[in-house]
Structures are given as C-alpha cells and as structure tokens.
Computed example of a mutant assay.
Amino acid sequence: MREHLEDWEWAQTLVRFTDRRPPDEVVQSVRAVPLVGNGVVVCRLSDGTAFLPGGTREEGESVDACMRRELAEEAGFLVTGHPRWFAAHSGVSYHRVPYKPYAPFPLKAWLWGVVEGEIVGPPTNPAGAEQVASVSVLRPEDAVDLLEKEGRGYAQALRFWMNSGASIEF
C-alpha cells in the first residue's frame, strides 16, 4: 500500500492511511463499515453531513466494545458478527494536550473495521454526542460517492476495503 501524509486540521494530527494495525493503546477512535446484507450503513446529521459511524473510545474500553457501542448510538445497529479490522489512519498530534485525559498522545490512530449486523431501531443519540438525523443502507459504490466530499477518510477507507476484499484482516 502506498502511504502518504495528510494534515487533519480538525484533529490537529498528521496522519497516514495504512493497512498496518497500530497497537491498541494508540487507538483513540474506531470507525466502521457496517454491513446489512450487501449494503453499507451511512449516517447523516440534520445539516446533511454524511459519515460512517464510529467514535472515540471511552476510558478502558476495548476497540471491539467501542465499535459495538458507537454503532448502536449512531445507527441503531446491532453487531451480529466479529469486527474485521482492515486499516487505520495513524498519526502524530500537534495539539498541546490530549483530546481526552486518558486518550493516547501524541501518537493516535483511528482504526477501521468492517462488521455485519442489522438495524434494530433508531440511533440512541446520547447527550453530548453527534445527533444523527437519518440512517441509510446504500450500495458500497453509492456510499463512496456520497462520502467523497466529506473528508475525514471515510471514502478512502471504504474504497480500500472494497478493493481489498471483504476477508482482509490484519
């Protein structure tokens, strides 16, 4: 895989997209490619912003538990399979302090996984979190097209997963 450096100003972090799994202790956040049948679950905020669900780990939370929690909160998604981790955005923060007191710093990573499941209800939208307005299941190609303009590595990770095959795991 050809890796290049990107400046994620929103996270104040220089990152590389890689197929190498970072150590769990530097994983700040998990991101999911949630599958329902042959489709990918995509969430939208009330302003129309589209994203793949995922988020920041809680203190002491495993990456698998974080994925299950974030999918329920943001998509009403029940995980029925085991996450298959396939890529990461890994980097070094240039912020002065950690994002959360317990979060890894200055090394951090956003771990990407694919997982099967089903939508069992609306997003739980806990207070203080992103408030998801709608959840859709799209063909993977349509999800890439929608997410391309959003940044934050969504389309990049989804395209990589699609081109690598569903069985990739690292």
Rank of each mutant, 00 (worst) to 15 (best):
119 I>L: 12
109 A>F: 02
122 P>S: 12
140 P>Y: 05
130 E>H: 10
126 P>W: 00
106 P>K: 14
122 P>H: 09
117 G>C: 09
143 A>D: 10
108 K>V: 07
105 F>D: 07
124 T>R: 12
109 A>C: 01
130 E>P: 11
141 E>V: 14
138 L>G: 03
121 G>P: 02
130 E>F: 01
117 G>P: 08
139 R>S: 10
137 V>C: 04
134 S>G: 08
109 A>T: 00
123 P>G: 01
141 E>C: 05
113 G>P: 10
119 I>P: 01
132 V>I: 15
134 S>L: 03
112 W>Y: 15
134 S>M: 02
109 A>R: 01
112 W>G: 06
119 I>E: 05
115 V>C: 06
118 E>V: 15
134 S>F: 00
124 T>Q: 01
130 E>R: 13
112 W>V: 07
111 L>M: 13
120 V>K: 11
128 G>N: 04
143 A>Y: 10
117 G>E: 08
142 D>T: 07
132 V>R: 07
111 L>P: 08
126 P>H: 03
138 L>I: 02
117 G>A: 10
131 Q>F: 00
118 E>G: 06
134 S>H: 00
124 T>S: 12
139 R>P: 13
135 V>A: 03
128 G>P: 05
117 G>I: 10
141 E>D: 15
127 A>I: 04
122 P>T: 09
120 V>A: 11
108 K>M: 14
107 L>T: 04
141 E>Y: 05
105 F>C: 11
138 L>H: 04
106 P>V: 14
115 V>R: 08
135 V>Y: 02
115 V>N: 08
125 N>T: 03
128 G>M: 06
120 V>C: 06
114 V>E: 14
120 V>N: 03
107 L>Q: 11
105 F>V: 08
133 A>K: 06
113 G>H: 09
112 W>L: 14
125 N>C: 06
122 P>K: 13
142 D>N: 13
126 P>N: 00
118 E>W: 05
141 E>L: 14
107 L>H: 09
125 N>M: 02
135 V>P: 04
121 G>W: 06
122 P>A: 12
138 L>P: 06
137 V>L: 00
142 D>L: 08
133 A>V: 00
109 A>G: 00
128 G>D: 04
114 V>Q: 15
130 E>K: 13
